[in-house]
């Protein structure tokens, strides 16, 4: 499929340009720190000598363009520098904390699609009935509170009031699982420990749902409005006049075209989730990138801030590319338009 290949290539190039822009932006933000970052990092008791050493190590005396050049050179070798907070390579830190965050986000994303889209479709099919009103109010409520508020409410209801799920963390201490991928759902299965798998899954439910709620609301609202628009198209009327069953019309003729705009927004919602994960992780003491991210920001740990934001943005761009490709495969208009141009 050469058209699709060209689409992939084009997306890859654009994403790369955007990623370079992101690195410049975040680099610029990190370097406009008021005050001397070396002094802030070393604390008030540091000697001028130590500060000079650190300034030298971070190349802070070079012009900012040169600093950026050095940063790019190191980046091309997969080196994001050393964190001043943990004293380890930033890549090591991120590799340790990222899987927990990704696991949380992936489950949330799945919830968003598997709950949000059907809710929206249901709402559109039963438009202006009580089902529609109920779903609309619930999905609007979902987008109306920050993830940390939902996290607190869910925790109170389903971990304290009705103790169904664990309060915090990723895995009870009783389970000891060798770390292979960092994704506990995979690691526990890899270890063949089903009890630990169930335990890890139970720990995931509340944080993932708290994180997914606004996305579920968003997806449902969008799917509903798209499907209602589709329902007004003549081909639906034709299908209805042929006497096709409503269920089939809803599924095959109304839902499918509405998927396309919904998927685009799901890509954007994923960006919001990457940020909102910080809020949910804080409430549920989830050992992900959040605590590290907030800590390095408060300590003005330049290398770690730049590295963390860059990795998060790259993750977001990759997901959006996947979404775009999925759209290219689903939507014949996109698939074929590349060929003609």
């Amino acid at each position: 499929m050469p058209a699709l290949a060209r689409l992939i290539l084009w997306r890859l190039v654009t994403s790369l340009i955007v990623l370079v822009g992101v690195s410049m932006l975040i680099f610029a933000i990190a370097r406009v720190i008021p005050g001397d970052p070396a002094r802030i990092a070393l604390g008030p008791n540091a000697t001028p000598d130590q500060i000079e050493q650190l300034r030298d190590r971070l190349n802070l005396d070079e012009p900012i363009v040169v600093q950026y050049g050095i940063f790019l050179r190191d980046l091309s070798r997969g080196d994001l520098g050393t964190s001043l907070y943990t004293n380890r390579p930033v890549t090591t830190d991120i590799a340790q904390f990222l899987p927990a965050t990704l696991e949380l986000i992936m489950i949330s994303g799945a919830m968003m699609i598997l709950i949000g889209l059907p809710l929206g479709a249901l709402s559109a099919r039963y438009r202006d009935t009580w089902i529609d009103s109920l779903i609309r109010v619930v999905s609007l409520l979902g987008v109306s509170a920050p993830a940390f508020v939902w996290a607190v409410i869910l925790m109170l209801l389903f971990a304290y009031f009705l103790p169904i799920f664990p309060v915090s963390g990723r895995l009870s201490e009783a389970h000891d699982i060798p770390r292979v991928t960092g994704f506990l759902l995979i690691d526990t299965l890899h270890a063949g420990n089903l009890a630990a798998f169930r335990n890890a899954a139970a720990h995931l439910v509340l944080p993932a749902f708290a994180l997914a709620l606004s996305g579920i609301g968003q997806a449902a609202r969008l799917t509903r409005s798209n499907m209602i628009e589709t329902y007004e198209k003549p081909y639906i009327e034709m299908a209805q006049s042929y006497g096709f069953p409503e269920r089939r019309i809803a599924r095959r003729y109304a839902f499918k075209p509405s998927l396309i705009p919904s998927l685009t927004i799901i890509g954007l919602d994923f960006a919001a989730m990457l940020g909102n994960a910080f809020l949910v992780e804080a409430v549920f003491a989830w050992p992900g990138l959040s605590r590290y991210g907030v800590e390095v920001i408060l300590r003005k740990d330049l290398n770690a801030i730049v590295g963390t934001v860059l990795i998060i943005s790259a993750t977001f761009l990759i997901v959006n590319m996947i979404v775009d490709l999925a759209l290219g495969i689903i939507n014949p208009r996109i698939r074929h338009s590349q060929r003609s141009s």
Partner: peptide, 22 residues
């Protein structure tokens, strides 16, 4: 493309990093 750059950093993360340095 400049707009895309800003939209590619999750909103909260962008605001956090700006708040962090200020």
């Amino acid at each position: 493309r400049i707009t895309d750059v800003f939209l590619s950093i999750p909103p909260l993360v962008l605001a956090m990093s700006i708040m962090g340095v200020l």
